[in-house]
């Protein structure tokens, strides 16, 4: 392009050209560069957030893999306790499910039973703010007569048969008519599940 010959006109053209070019640069920067940079910043921010979440998720998954062993161990112990040690009702009656075991133990240890009375289900106290209990207490009162050693063997056999069974009351009274056979009254309690089951369907973390 040839510039005008007149100096004044030439300066005018140059100034106009400069202004035009500056406007073009400004337009390019504001319409293309800045939006691109803004989107780049947004992308970077989003990527940072996702990366942070990824790191947290990675930690969670990693720790869950480590805790998986504990989970499996607890679940297995709870399942074993549920099938072997927790009292389950037979046709709605807890007494039916424990009576045979008590009578057999008494026969084996030479304790004469004169009665088994049901105390029933009881709720144990809960600390303020604590979640509801999974277990309630089911209790019975066993009445009979036996010598001190037989009573001891009877209680030992009961305690050994179930690690969660608790002997919560006992009364041994000497009898004037037969000093070798004491009057015996024992209260026995077991934990029973009250509704919520042990979780079994947790996702396996690979």
């Amino acid at each position: 392009m040839k510039l005008p010959k007149e100096r004044k006109e030439r300066i005018q053209v140059l100034v106009l050209g400069t202004i035009g070019l500056a406007a073009l640069v400004f337009a390019v920067v504001s319409l293309a560069v800045n939006p691109l940079l803004a989107r780049q910043r947004r992308n970077a921010k989003k990527a940072d957030i996702v990366m942070e979440n990824l790191a947290k998720a990675d930690r969670d998954v990693h720790s869950m893999v480590l805790l998986g062993n504990e989970y499996r161990r607890l679940q297995s112990e709870l399942n074993a306790a549920e099938s072997n040690d927790l009292v389950k009702p037979v046709l709605g009656s807890y007494l039916l499910s424990v009576r045979d075991g008590i009578e057999q133990t008494a026969r084996r240890t030479d304790v004469k039973l004169t009665g088994i009375q049901e105390i029933g289900l009881q709720v144990l106290p809960i600390a303020a703010g604590a979640p509801n209990r999974t277990f309630r207490s089911y209790g019975i009162q066993v009445i009979g007569a036996a010598g001190y050693a037989q009573v001891r063997n009877f209680l030992k056999a009961l305690e050994t048969s179930n690690p969660y069974l608790s002997i919560t009351e006992i009364a041994i009274n000497g009898r004037a008519d037969d000093p070798r056979a004491h009057g015996l009254s024992v209260r026995i309690e077991w934990p029973v599940m009250t509704g919520e089951n042990i979780p079994t369907s947790a996702g396996e973390v690979k």
């Binding site: 998720a57 969670d60 869950m64 989970y71 979780p199 947790a202 996702g203 690979k206």
Partner: peptide
């Protein structure tokens, strides 16, 4: 996987 881990955390 994180959802699975969170569920497992709750179950645990």
């Amino acid at each position: 996987r994180q959802k699975e881990a969170a569920q497992m955390g709750k179950d645990l």
